[in-house]
Simulated scan of single mutants.
Amino acid sequence: MRTVLIIGVGAGDPEQVTVQAINAMNACDAFFVLDKGEAAAELTEARRALCSRYVTGSYRTVIIPDPPRDRAAADYEGAVRDWRDERARLLAEAVERELPDGGVGGILAWGDPALYDGTIRVLDSIRAAGHDVGYEVIPGISSVQILTARHRVTLNRVAGPVHITTGRRLAAGWPAGCSDVVVMLDAGLACSAYRDLPIDIYWGAYLGTPDEILIAGRLDAVIDEIASVRAEARARKGWIMDTYLLRLHPEPTASSD
Protein backbone atom coordinates (compact mmCIF):
# COMPACT_ATOMS: atom_id res chain seq x y z
CA MET A 1 0.00 0.00 0.00
CA ARG A 2 1.07 3.56 -0.73
CA THR A 3 0.44 6.21 1.93
CA VAL A 4 -0.27 9.91 1.55
CA LEU A 5 0.23 12.29 4.47
CA ILE A 6 -2.04 15.35 4.38
CA ILE A 7 0.06 17.81 6.34
CA GLY A 8 -1.37 21.05 7.70
CA VAL A 9 1.39 23.67 7.51
CA GLY A 10 -0.42 26.74 8.83
CA ALA A 11 -1.36 29.88 6.99
CA GLY A 12 2.07 30.96 5.83
CA ASP A 13 4.44 31.63 8.73
CA PRO A 14 7.10 28.87 8.66
CA GLU A 15 7.51 29.22 12.42
CA GLN A 16 3.90 28.08 12.87
CA VAL A 17 4.58 24.67 11.32
CA THR A 18 4.25 22.12 14.13
CA VAL A 19 6.87 19.58 15.17
CA GLN A 20 4.47 16.82 14.14
CA ALA A 21 4.18 18.37 10.67
CA ILE A 22 7.98 18.61 10.34
CA ASN A 23 8.37 14.95 11.31
CA ALA A 24 5.71 13.98 8.78
CA MET A 25 7.43 16.01 6.05
CA ASN A 26 10.66 14.15 6.73
CA ALA A 27 8.87 10.82 6.29
CA CYS A 28 7.89 11.64 2.71
CA ASP A 29 9.56 10.32 -0.42
CA ALA A 30 7.72 12.82 -2.63
CA PHE A 31 5.49 15.85 -2.31
CA PHE A 32 2.49 16.28 -4.60
CA VAL A 33 1.56 19.84 -5.56
CA LEU A 34 -1.64 20.76 -7.38
CA ASP A 35 -0.41 23.70 -9.42
CA LYS A 36 -2.97 26.48 -9.96
CA GLY A 37 -0.84 28.28 -12.54
CA GLU A 38 0.95 31.59 -12.62
CA ALA A 39 -1.58 33.39 -10.40
CA ALA A 40 -0.71 31.10 -7.49
CA ALA A 41 2.99 30.62 -8.25
CA GLU A 42 3.84 32.34 -4.98
CA LEU A 43 1.99 29.64 -3.05
CA THR A 44 3.81 26.87 -4.90
CA GLU A 45 7.12 28.55 -4.13
CA ALA A 46 6.13 28.89 -0.46
CA ARG A 47 5.60 25.13 -0.27
CA ARG A 48 9.03 24.57 -1.80
CA ALA A 49 10.55 26.93 0.77
CA LEU A 50 8.98 24.97 3.62
CA CYS A 51 10.43 21.72 2.29
CA SER A 52 13.85 23.31 1.83
CA ARG A 53 13.76 24.63 5.39
CA TYR A 54 12.53 21.55 7.22
CA VAL A 55 13.24 18.40 5.18
CA THR A 56 16.73 17.08 5.84
CA GLY A 57 16.73 14.11 3.47
CA SER A 58 16.12 13.68 -0.24
CA TYR A 59 12.68 14.02 -1.78
CA ARG A 60 10.95 14.70 -5.08
CA THR A 61 8.37 17.34 -5.94
CA VAL A 62 5.63 16.18 -8.30
CA ILE A 63 3.68 18.98 -9.97
CA ILE A 64 0.10 18.18 -11.03
CA PRO A 65 -1.78 20.80 -13.07
CA ASP A 66 -4.93 21.65 -11.14
CA PRO A 67 -8.02 21.02 -13.30
CA PRO A 68 -10.15 24.06 -14.18
CA ARG A 69 -13.22 24.75 -12.05
CA ASP A 70 -16.48 26.30 -13.25
CA ARG A 71 -17.09 28.95 -10.58
CA ALA A 72 -20.14 30.35 -12.40
CA ALA A 73 -22.02 27.05 -12.70
CA ALA A 74 -25.70 27.11 -11.73
CA ASP A 75 -25.14 23.85 -9.85
CA TYR A 76 -22.32 25.08 -7.61
CA GLU A 77 -22.05 21.94 -5.48
CA GLY A 78 -22.15 19.73 -8.57
CA ALA A 79 -19.35 21.75 -10.17
CA VAL A 80 -17.28 21.35 -7.00
CA ARG A 81 -17.85 17.58 -7.05
CA ASP A 82 -16.79 17.33 -10.69
CA TRP A 83 -13.66 19.38 -9.98
CA ARG A 84 -12.82 17.28 -6.93
CA ASP A 85 -13.33 14.02 -8.85
CA GLU A 86 -10.94 15.18 -11.58
CA ARG A 87 -8.42 16.18 -8.93
CA ALA A 88 -8.76 12.71 -7.41
CA ARG A 89 -8.16 11.03 -10.78
CA LEU A 90 -5.03 13.07 -11.49
CA LEU A 91 -3.64 12.61 -7.98
CA ALA A 92 -4.29 8.85 -8.00
CA GLU A 93 -2.41 8.52 -11.28
CA ALA A 94 0.52 10.53 -9.91
CA VAL A 95 0.68 8.59 -6.63
CA GLU A 96 0.69 5.22 -8.39
CA ARG A 97 3.26 6.43 -10.93
CA GLU A 98 5.63 8.17 -8.52
CA LEU A 99 5.46 6.04 -5.36
CA PRO A 100 6.49 2.40 -5.07
CA ASP A 101 4.50 0.00 -2.93
CA GLY A 102 5.18 1.07 0.66
CA GLY A 103 6.16 4.59 -0.40
CA VAL A 104 5.01 7.72 1.41
CA GLY A 105 3.87 10.90 -0.29
CA GLY A 106 2.98 14.25 1.20
CA ILE A 107 0.49 16.99 0.42
CA LEU A 108 1.10 20.29 2.19
CA ALA A 109 -2.27 21.83 3.03
CA TRP A 110 -2.54 25.49 3.98
CA GLY A 111 -4.03 26.06 7.41
CA ASP A 112 -5.70 22.96 8.78
CA PRO A 113 -6.78 20.15 6.41
CA ALA A 114 -10.14 19.80 8.19
CA LEU A 115 -11.28 23.41 7.72
CA TYR A 116 -12.48 24.37 4.24
CA ASP A 117 -9.84 22.27 2.50
CA GLY A 118 -10.86 19.54 0.06
CA THR A 119 -7.81 17.26 0.27
CA ILE A 120 -9.37 14.77 2.68
CA ARG A 121 -12.38 14.37 0.38
CA VAL A 122 -10.04 13.87 -2.59
CA LEU A 123 -8.26 11.01 -0.80
CA ASP A 124 -11.63 9.52 0.19
CA SER A 125 -12.61 9.59 -3.50
CA ILE A 126 -9.36 7.88 -4.47
CA ARG A 127 -9.97 5.09 -1.97
CA ALA A 128 -13.63 4.76 -2.99
CA ALA A 129 -12.47 4.24 -6.59
CA GLY A 130 -10.54 1.16 -5.45
CA HIS A 131 -6.99 2.49 -5.30
CA ASP A 132 -4.78 0.91 -2.65
CA VAL A 133 -3.82 4.23 -1.04
CA GLY A 134 -3.97 4.96 2.66
CA TYR A 135 -3.73 8.40 4.21
CA GLU A 136 -3.16 10.19 7.50
CA VAL A 137 -4.00 13.75 8.51
CA ILE A 138 -1.65 16.02 10.44
CA PRO A 139 -3.46 19.10 11.83
CA GLY A 140 -2.17 22.61 11.31
CA ILE A 141 -2.73 26.10 12.68
CA SER A 142 -5.68 27.62 10.83
CA SER A 143 -6.12 31.15 9.53
CA VAL A 144 -8.97 31.53 12.03
CA GLN A 145 -6.57 30.98 14.93
CA ILE A 146 -4.08 33.45 13.51
CA LEU A 147 -6.83 36.02 12.85
CA THR A 148 -8.00 36.07 16.47
CA ALA A 149 -4.43 36.06 17.80
CA ARG A 150 -3.42 39.02 15.63
CA HIS A 151 -6.48 41.03 16.66
CA ARG A 152 -6.15 39.90 20.29
CA VAL A 153 -9.76 38.75 20.55
CA THR A 154 -11.38 35.50 21.57
CA LEU A 155 -13.24 33.55 18.92
CA ASN A 156 -16.34 33.21 21.07
CA ARG A 157 -17.98 35.23 23.81
CA VAL A 158 -18.72 33.73 27.24
CA ALA A 159 -20.54 30.41 26.73
CA GLY A 160 -21.48 31.57 23.23
CA PRO A 161 -21.46 29.64 19.94
CA VAL A 162 -19.39 30.45 16.86
CA HIS A 163 -20.67 29.95 13.34
CA ILE A 164 -18.10 29.32 10.58
CA THR A 165 -19.40 29.79 7.05
CA THR A 166 -18.58 31.00 3.55
CA GLY A 167 -19.26 34.25 1.79
CA ARG A 168 -21.79 32.48 -0.42
CA ARG A 169 -23.77 31.33 2.63
CA LEU A 170 -23.55 34.69 4.38
CA ALA A 171 -24.94 36.38 1.28
CA ALA A 172 -28.02 34.17 1.61
CA GLY A 173 -28.77 35.45 5.12
CA TRP A 174 -27.38 36.03 8.59
CA PRO A 175 -27.16 32.73 10.54
CA ALA A 176 -30.13 32.51 12.90
CA GLY A 177 -29.34 32.84 16.60
CA CYS A 178 -25.65 33.62 16.02
CA SER A 179 -23.78 36.71 17.05
CA ASP A 180 -20.21 35.61 16.24
CA VAL A 181 -19.65 34.54 12.64
CA VAL A 182 -16.37 33.62 10.95
CA VAL A 183 -16.41 33.98 7.17
CA MET A 184 -14.00 32.25 4.80
CA LEU A 185 -13.84 31.87 1.02
CA ASP A 186 -15.61 35.16 0.41
CA ALA A 187 -14.83 36.47 -3.07
CA GLY A 188 -17.14 39.46 -2.83
CA LEU A 189 -17.16 40.72 0.77
CA ALA A 190 -20.70 39.51 1.46
CA CYS A 191 -20.56 41.25 4.83
CA SER A 192 -21.11 44.56 3.02
CA ALA A 193 -24.84 43.78 2.99
CA TYR A 194 -24.90 44.05 6.79
CA ARG A 195 -23.21 47.42 7.16
CA ASP A 196 -26.35 48.97 8.70
CA LEU A 197 -26.29 46.50 11.62
CA PRO A 198 -24.25 47.06 14.82
CA ILE A 199 -21.41 44.73 13.85
CA ASP A 200 -17.69 44.78 14.58
CA ILE A 201 -15.41 43.21 11.99
CA TYR A 202 -11.95 41.74 12.48
CA TRP A 203 -10.49 41.22 9.01
CA GLY A 204 -7.17 39.78 7.92
CA ALA A 205 -5.51 38.91 4.62
CA TYR A 206 -2.35 36.89 3.89
CA LEU A 207 -2.34 35.93 7.55
CA GLY A 208 0.97 34.62 8.82
CA THR A 209 2.96 35.99 5.88
CA PRO A 210 5.11 39.12 5.43
CA ASP A 211 2.22 40.62 3.41
CA GLU A 212 -0.27 40.29 6.27
CA ILE A 213 -2.94 43.02 6.41
CA LEU A 214 -5.22 43.65 9.39
CA ILE A 215 -8.22 45.98 9.72
CA ALA A 216 -10.76 46.09 12.54
CA GLY A 217 -13.60 48.33 13.60
CA ARG A 218 -17.31 48.98 13.24
CA LEU A 219 -18.38 47.39 9.97
CA ASP A 220 -20.04 50.50 8.56
CA ALA A 221 -16.93 52.57 9.35
CA VAL A 222 -14.28 50.29 7.84
CA ILE A 223 -15.93 48.20 5.12
CA ASP A 224 -15.07 50.67 2.35
CA GLU A 225 -11.45 50.72 3.49
CA ILE A 226 -11.36 46.92 3.54
CA ALA A 227 -12.84 46.75 0.04
CA SER A 228 -10.27 49.23 -1.30
CA VAL A 229 -7.27 47.62 0.42
CA ARG A 230 -8.45 44.16 -0.63
CA ALA A 231 -8.85 45.14 -4.29
CA GLU A 232 -5.42 46.79 -4.40
CA ALA A 233 -3.73 43.79 -2.78
CA ARG A 234 -5.42 41.33 -5.10
CA ALA A 235 -4.46 43.35 -8.18
CA ARG A 236 -0.87 43.62 -6.98
CA LYS A 237 -0.35 39.97 -6.05
CA GLY A 238 -2.80 38.24 -8.38
CA TRP A 239 -4.54 36.38 -5.56
CA ILE A 240 -5.86 36.93 -2.06
CA MET A 241 -6.62 34.81 0.98
CA ASP A 242 -8.65 36.58 3.64
CA THR A 243 -10.75 35.65 6.64
CA TYR A 244 -12.87 37.72 8.98
CA LEU A 245 -14.85 37.56 12.21
CA LEU A 246 -18.15 39.42 12.50
CA ARG A 247 -19.39 40.26 15.99
CA LEU A 248 -23.02 41.40 16.26
CA HIS A 249 -24.08 43.63 19.17
CA PRO A 250 -25.96 42.96 21.32
CA GLU A 251 -25.83 39.17 21.48
CA PRO A 252 -29.09 37.42 20.55
CA THR A 253 -31.31 36.78 23.56
CA ALA A 254 -31.48 33.12 24.55
CA SER A 255 -34.86 31.44 24.10
CA SER A 256 -36.83 30.78 27.29
CA ASP A 257 -38.41 27.63 25.80
Rank of each mutant, 00 (worst) to 15 (best):
S143L: 00
R97E: 10
A159V: 12
I120W: 02
D196S: 13
Y206G: 00
S255H: 12
L245D: 02
R97G: 08
A46N: 06
Y54E: 07
I223K: 00
G238L: 13
I7W: 04
Y54D: 05
G78F: 06
V181C: 02
T119F: 11
C191W: 09
A129D: 15
I6H: 02
R152T: 08
D13W: 00
R121L: 14
L50Q: 00
V229P: 03
L99T: 05
D112G: 06
A88E: 03
L90S: 06
T166L: 01
V158N: 02
P65I: 12
G111I: 06
D124L: 05
R218F: 09
R71Q: 10
L91R: 11
Y135H: 06
E77S: 13
D211G: 06
T166W: 02
N156P: 01
A88R: 01
G167Q: 02
N23V: 08
A227R: 15
I223T: 04
D70S: 11
V19H: 13
V182G: 02
Y116S: 05
S228V: 15
A216M: 14
I213A: 11
D200M: 13
V33L: 15
D257H: 11
T61L: 14
I6W: 00
S142V: 08
N156I: 14
A114F: 12
I141M: 08
S142G: 02
I7F: 07
E93F: 13
S255E: 12
H249P: 10
Y59N: 01
D220W: 04
A254Y: 14
V9A: 04
V55D: 00
T119K: 03
W110A: 04
A216K: 15
V80W: 04
S58M: 07
C28W: 10
Q145K: 01
G57W: 04
L207C: 10
P139I: 05
D117K: 12
P14N: 00
A159T: 09
V9Q: 02
G37F: 11
T154H: 08
A159W: 06
I146C: 07
N26P: 01
Q20P: 07
V19P: 03
Q20H: 14
L170T: 06
Y244A: 09
L43C: 06
D132V: 14
G8N: 03
T209P: 13
R195W: 09
T165N: 00
G12I: 02
D70N: 15
R97D: 11
L90A: 08
I64P: 06
G12C: 01
P113W: 03
D101H: 14
D112Q: 10
V104S: 11
G140H: 00
I240P: 07
Y54C: 09
E93H: 14
I6D: 02
L43P: 01
D220E: 09
D13E: 04
D180S: 07
T166N: 01
G78T: 09
I226G: 12
A227G: 15
E38T: 13
L108Q: 01
G78P: 07
F32R: 09
L155R: 06
E136Q: 04
A94E: 03
R71L: 13
